[in-house]
Amino acid sequence: TCPLCKTELNIGSKDPPNFNTCTECKNQVCNLCGFNPTPHLTEIQEWLCLNCQTQRA
């Protein structure tokens, strides 16, 4: 489950994953609780959960 919103993560499912791993804290959170803060920078593959995003802001 997502630590932030308690959504079930579909780990091991044949569906596309509905979660990602935060590059900062390494927690697995669902796609609604994390995002790529710099989608225009292709050389930085970063994906932050809302916790890390808030701490950085």
Rank of each mutant, 00 (worst) to 15 (best):
Q45H: 03
D15F: 11
K26W: 10
N10I: 09
N36Q: 11
Q45E: 03
N20M: 15
V29K: 04
L50E: 15
C52H: 04
C52E: 03
N31F: 14
K6D: 04
N31C: 13
I11A: 06
C33M: 01
G12A: 03
L41W: 07
D15P: 04
K6R: 04
T42V: 13
T7E: 13
L9E: 08
L41I: 15
T21N: 14
C52S: 01
L9P: 06
C2K: 01
T21S: 13
K26L: 14
T54Q: 15
F35N: 13
P39G: 05
F19I: 15
L32P: 07
C52M: 00
P16D: 01
L41P: 10
T23I: 06
Q45A: 08
T23C: 12
N51G: 08
N20K: 14
I44T: 04
N20F: 09
L50P: 15
T23H: 06
N36F: 12
P3F: 05
N20C: 08
C2D: 02
P39Q: 14
P16I: 06
F35M: 15
L48C: 15
C22D: 01
L41H: 05
L41N: 14
T42H: 14
T21F: 08
F19G: 10
N31Q: 11
T54E: 15
T54I: 03
F35R: 15
T42M: 05
T7I: 04
P39T: 11
N36M: 12
T54M: 02
Q53S: 12
G12E: 13
T54C: 06
S13Q: 14
C30I: 00
T7N: 11
N31E: 14
P37N: 01
N20G: 13
E8A: 05
W47K: 08
V29T: 07
G12Y: 07
P39R: 11
T23A: 14
I44K: 15
C33A: 02
L4R: 09
L9F: 11
C49A: 02
C33H: 13
E24H: 09
H40E: 09
C25P: 02
T7M: 04
N10A: 12
E43W: 08
L48T: 08
Q28N: 07
C25V: 02
G34R: 08
C22H: 02
P17D: 07
C22M: 01
C2V: 00
N36E: 14
S13Y: 05
P3M: 09
S13T: 10
P3Q: 03
N27D: 08
G12Q: 04
L4Y: 08
N20Q: 13
G34A: 08
F19Q: 15
C5N: 01
G34Q: 09
E46G: 10
N18G: 08
T21Y: 14
C52A: 00
E43H: 01
L32N: 06
E46W: 03
P3L: 04
H40R: 13
P16R: 06
V29W: 07
K26P: 07
T7W: 01
D15C: 07
D15V: 11
P39Y: 07
L50F: 05
E46K: 09
P37Y: 03
L4S: 11
T1P: 05
L48P: 04
E46R: 08
E46F: 03
H40G: 13
C49R: 01
C2L: 00
N51A: 10
P16G: 03
I11K: 08
C5L: 00
E43R: 14
Q28R: 11
T7A: 09
F19W: 09
K26A: 15
N18C: 05
T42K: 09
E24K: 10
W47A: 08
E46L: 07
T7D: 10
L4T: 09
K26E: 12
K14M: 07
T42D: 10
K6E: 09
I44N: 07
D15Q: 11
P17R: 08
Q45D: 05
K14D: 11
C22K: 01
P39C: 07
D15W: 04
E43K: 11
I44W: 04
T23K: 10
P39E: 13
W47H: 07
Q28C: 11
C25W: 00
K14Q: 08
G12M: 12
H40C: 12
L4W: 02
H40V: 12
V29D: 04
L32G: 15
C25Q: 02
E24S: 07
C33P: 01
I11H: 13
E24L: 03
P17H: 03
L4P: 01
C5G: 01
L50R: 15
C5W: 00
C49H: 01
L41Y: 13
N51V: 04
F19K: 01
C22E: 02
